[in-house]
Write a protein that binds this DNA or RNA. Structure first.
Length: 262
DNA sequence: CGGAGCCCCTGTAAGC
DNA sequence: TGCTTACAGGGGCTCC
């Protein structure tokens, strides 16, 4: 599923083909991906010039010469510069110089236009690659489980299920550990782990666990580096103990019961 | 405030 | 083999 590294990879792969281009026409077919009037959304976009494309958390934000187009890929959303059109193609953008397709089998993604800055983005927490340790530590003073907190986009923006599990493993912290009880040393380790893992994942083009690809259709390679995610029952890379999978905050949560302490 | 549970959706995999 | 059911999950919602 697209999390911060995957969305960053998509933005980097798509931006050179979009910035400065004008949208000639747009059409949408899903009442879930594009809630409200699809025709009105298309109308907002026709003739607009894409000024910039950036990432904030898991959101792709395109500043237009009038308004902002925000894309969230949900679980299975893809932006593709070239694609066959099929029943899962829910957005087609014709640019003055090329095409952009939005493809999303499960339709958990969203494409929305706003006049100003998008409201959902305003509620996001800090960027994990930018937050200072002191700010990070201050934000840990919550009465909640570490796994739940990492998934909370108002805590940090962009960390999802895979990178939450991998970061907690790298820091040796149990997913059920209480956030407010982390010692300074363990908080430091987690801060470093999150940054290191996200940066490494971006370098490898993200994780392709189901069918994630960038805008050119290329897969990422960070799934080869996963130590716990998707490895239930396999021996821990550190100690050989079988990796366990439990449910936390309704999400599959993978961890080493020996290496990760509450 | 935090968390459990449910919902949106559909491809895939497991179970019978 | 073929059908049915469970599961995967980002995020928003209600209820306790």
């Amino acid at each position: 599923m697209p999390e911060l590294p995957e969305v960053e990879t998509v933005v980097r792969s798509v931006a050179p083909h979009l910035v400065g281009r004008r949208i000639v026409s747009a059409s949408f077919t899903s009442r879930f991906v594009t809630p409200g009037s699809r025709a009105r959304l298309a109308g907002r976009l026709v003739g607009r010039r894409i000024e910039s494309v950036r990432r904030r958390g898991k959101f792709i934000i395109m500043a237009l010469d009038q308004g902002t187009l925000t894309v969230h890929l949900g679980m299975t959303g893809k932006l593709l510069l070239a694609s066959e059109r099929d029943q899962h193609t829910h957005g087609v953008f014709t640019l003055e110089d090329g095409m952009l397709y939005y493809h999303d089998p499960r339709q958990f993604g969203r494409i929305e236009w706003s006049a100003g800055s998008p409201p959902r983005v305003a509620r996001l927490g800090p960027e994990p690659l930018e937050i200072s340790f002191e700010d990070f530590r201050a934000r840990l003073r919550r009465k909640t489980r570490m796994k739940s907190l990492l998934l909370n986009q108002t805590f940090l923006a962009g960390v999802g299920n895979i990178y939450a599990d991998e970061s907690l493993f790298a820091a040796g912290i149990h997913p059920l550990a209480m956030a407010q009880r982390l010692t300074r040393g363990r908080a430091e380790k987690l801060h470093q782990a999150i940054r290191g893992i996200l940066a490494h994942a971006i370098e490898l083009g993200g994780s392709s666990i189901s069918d994630y690809v960038n805008a050119q259709g290329e897969r990422g390679w960070f799934q080869m580096e996963h130590r716990v995610y998707g490895r239930e029952g396999e021996p821990c890379a550190n100690c050989g103990t079988p990796i366990r999978k439990i449910l936390v905050a309704q999400r599959g949560t993978h961890f080493c019961p020996r290496c990760q302490k509450k």
